[in-house]
Simulated scan of single mutants.
Amino acid sequence: MNEIWLEEPTESDESWAQIGEHTLDWLSRSTLPRARQMRLFLNYNLSQLPSTFANKLKNDLRDHWRSAFFELIVGRILQEIGYEFKHEVTLAGGNKPDFLIETSIGKIVIEATSPIINSRVGDFYKKVNPLIKILKDNAPENWVININNLPDIGFNDSKKPFKAFIEREFDNIPTNSSKEEIIITENFPQGKLKLSLIYKFDRSNPIGFYPSIGYAENSKYRIEHIIDEKRTQVREVDKPVILAIQGSNTGTDLNDFDQVLFGQTFTRMNRDMKVIEKGFNPNGLFISDNESPTYQGVLAFHEVGCKQVKIPTLYLHQKTNSQLKNIFDAFHIRYYEESNNCIKEIESQRNDYFKDFKFVTA
């Protein structure tokens, strides 16, 4: 058991993090309930990891919070689903993968990566991402949300008034409408909200644009880029490789992974807007006859944070070892079924392995 890393502050400080303040600096001084629970979360989960790995993470969390936090989560999940791991062990050829686990079909490498979004908008986007997530989660069916302006609600500020307003407004929007556009505005204490919703039947992405920060939905590009970037790093690894990708806080959802790895669904309509054909175009990176693919799978994390981690989804390459479906039954599984030309999904067979993470509830 590792020693407690983050001690409780000796003086009362009921303030939230200031703009630009590092999370660890805020945790070192704040006595808010959320800060106390976050210290407990970090102290406990670090204490469960091998000491050398935990000590490395303590340093990395200061300099590379996002990627180090993701490694912490991946390591703890591997432990909780029953796998001991070696961290950055040197393999033949000099490769040092993040995690090496022993399974019933042999050793498997898991490389964890947390893509960095466009640095020009990164800090701002991380701040507004919780608000965008609320919009996406509550988006009315068949409507695209264009974000003209968002209130300046801080990362650690309460989102409840914003969420309540969005839920109330979106509940009143019909799934079928003759209106070309709906405008929603509201003045919050932190600033003005202005949205314009455009009706688009069978839309795939509920968010259209965010012009004030040059926002563009390039999640698929980021996924493709990190897969290609990591390929050169793990190409010579003589073990099966699974690439774990953190998609949360980047505007990424599983639909983006579906399109990049397997392909795209399509709908054709006639002039009367009636659907005349639906289908699937299997043109993704994991649709290949290569018997020795660089990646056996991609482990997609849709939600990663101190408050919760959603069960990740393991995307399997078309030519991967089918036994991976059983080895990793704690994850959702998605794979391409050629006979029916579609994406198939197997739900996780275990969902209780997050119960001991001590997630933040405040």
Rank of each mutant, 00 (worst) to 15 (best):
L72T: 02
V74W: 03
R76Y: 13
I77L: 14
L78K: 13
F85H: 07
T90P: 03
A92R: 11
G94N: 11
G94R: 08
N95E: 12
N95K: 11
K96R: 08
P97F: 00
D98L: 04
I101P: 11
T103Y: 03
I110L: 06
E111D: 08
P115W: 06
I116F: 14
I117V: 12
I117C: 09
N118Q: 10
R120C: 09
V121I: 08
V121W: 09
G122F: 10
Y125C: 01
Y125D: 02
K127Y: 12
P130M: 07
L131F: 14
I132E: 10
K133Y: 14
E141A: 06
N142H: 01
W143N: 00
W143R: 00
I147M: 08
P151S: 00
K159H: 01
K159F: 03
I166Q: 14
F170T: 03
F170M: 04
N172H: 12
I173L: 09
P174V: 06
E181M: 13
I183L: 13
N187Q: 15
N187S: 09
F188C: 04
F188G: 06
F188A: 03
G191T: 07
G191A: 02
G191F: 01
G191W: 03
L193R: 03
S196I: 02
Y199C: 03
Y199K: 01
F201Y: 05
D202R: 02
R203A: 12
